[in-house]
Simulated scan of single mutants.
Amino acid sequence: MSGFTRSEFGGFKLAGKILSLTAAALMASSAFASAESMDDLIAAAKKEGQLTTIALPHDWCGYGDLIEGFKKKYGIQVNELNPMAGSGDEIEAIKANKDNKGPQAPDVIDVGLSFGPSAKAEGLLMPYKVSTWDEIPDSAKDADGHWYGDYYGVLAFGTNKSVIDKAPTDWSDLTSDTYKNAVALAGDPRTANNAVMAVYAAGIAAGATGGKDAAEKGLEFFKKLNDEGNFVPVDAEAAPVAQGTTPVALNWDYNLLSMRDSMKGNPEIEVTVPKSGVVAGVYIQAISAYAPHPNAAKLWMEYLYSDEGQIGWLKGYCHPIRFNAMSKAGKIPQEVLDKLPAAENYANAVFPSLEDQTAAKTIIAEKWDSMVGANVK
């Protein structure tokens, strides 16, 4: 689940002894409306004394600092299971530990969007709405609170400035002579989600509204890019970007920003978010329906969705789901914003539904060979 290996973006992690009448009321509540009820939640969580997480490597989205911050703030121990697990592993961990209240049973999960609806349908998730619920976009949450978007990346351009002087600022720029033999996808669009979503984003920039239309227009754009000699059919990982083989990489912004930092200016990588076709890929949080520590799980959610938690994710280059609302309210420190591409472009981000993405993926996988004819390796 590190910044360079977790690629499930594209879509969006009660049980336990009732501690008191107050705690029972909290467990049934959909949100916290008062300081008094938050105090009750904190007390109930501290009585449980532990939170069990899974699939949260410390170098992913700032989770190392977030976990330490939670422990320090509330004095609750965090039991970390399998940091490198994938979303499917997290769901299986819930299933395998339904009757287990021990340390191998996760309280909370952080998974790709597609896993939310399916886990809810299987009865694996506990509904809970955090106090900042209204600032989570409707398209990125289950209406009943079983799962909700936590952070997202957007498709962006990473430019090796030692090879390309002028970084592109929009999708239409990529077809110009400036970017001959320069533009590459991070993966094969027939199989890799981030590459599929880059094609989708190009379609949105071309005026599509989503789904099949975005797929068709995106394929037309990449056909043009390939026919004009601008597209490079090489997987734009860090090495070919640094070597200049793929000097303009299309990838999630959080991956590109991590790549930029890892290269330490040799070469200089400029990351730009396009002016149009800003497409977001969302992860989601949820609480296990079998959580051994349900109150600690709820408190963890309150922490993550507070201003403090949201800024913690942003420091790890993953845009928190409340980014637009917090930005509008001036709640994001300038020093954090200074490390990101132009903030105004993020305000244009669209969050395609799971149905939209599925429809687009099918068309792109089926028609890439016949329409674009470039075998990405």
Rank of each mutant, 00 (worst) to 15 (best):
V282C: 06
Q243N: 12
Q357Y: 14
A329S: 13
P294D: 02
Y151V: 10
Y346P: 06
D356P: 09
M38I: 13
Y152I: 05
G16W: 03
G373L: 03
Y148L: 09
H293A: 07
A238V: 15
H58F: 10
K120L: 06
V241N: 03
G207N: 08
D213L: 09
A93H: 02
P352R: 05
D134A: 12
P341I: 11
I76V: 12
E90Q: 15
N79R: 08
K73Y: 06
I54L: 06
A249S: 15
G11V: 08
L354I: 13
M126P: 00
Y317P: 04
N82P: 00
K161F: 00
A23R: 01
P292G: 11
Y152C: 02
I204F: 02
L81H: 06
M326T: 07
G16V: 09
A24D: 14
M126F: 13
H319E: 03
L113V: 11
C61P: 00
K224A: 14
A202T: 09
N194Q: 12
N193V: 13
Q77D: 15
N295F: 14
A35K: 12
G153D: 05
A45I: 12
G11C: 08
A205S: 14
A202M: 03
V199W: 01
I67L: 07
N255K: 14
K98G: 11
M371Y: 02
P106T: 13
S162W: 00
I136P: 05
E366Q: 15
G3A: 10
V154W: 00
E80M: 06
K101T: 14
K217M: 09
Y128F: 15
V78P: 09
D89F: 06
Y305I: 04
T358Q: 10
A249M: 07
A156E: 02
M301Y: 08
A24K: 07
A121P: 05
A343L: 07
P103I: 07
F323D: 01
L56C: 06
L26F: 08
A236L: 08
A342F: 11
A296S: 15
I54N: 01
A96E: 08
N345R: 13
A105S: 15
R260H: 07
W171R: 00
T5N: 10
A140N: 09
L337Q: 08
L21Y: 01
L337T: 12
E90I: 15
H146V: 07
L304C: 11
I67Y: 01
S258R: 09
G203K: 04
N345L: 04
E344Y: 13
S370F: 05
G62Q: 04
K13C: 09
K361A: 15
A182Y: 01
D99P: 06
K264F: 04
Q104I: 11
P341G: 13
A208F: 09
V372P: 04
E268P: 00
S20D: 07
A33S: 14
I321Q: 01
D99E: 13
I204R: 05
K315T: 10
E335T: 12
V279G: 01
G229R: 10
F9D: 01
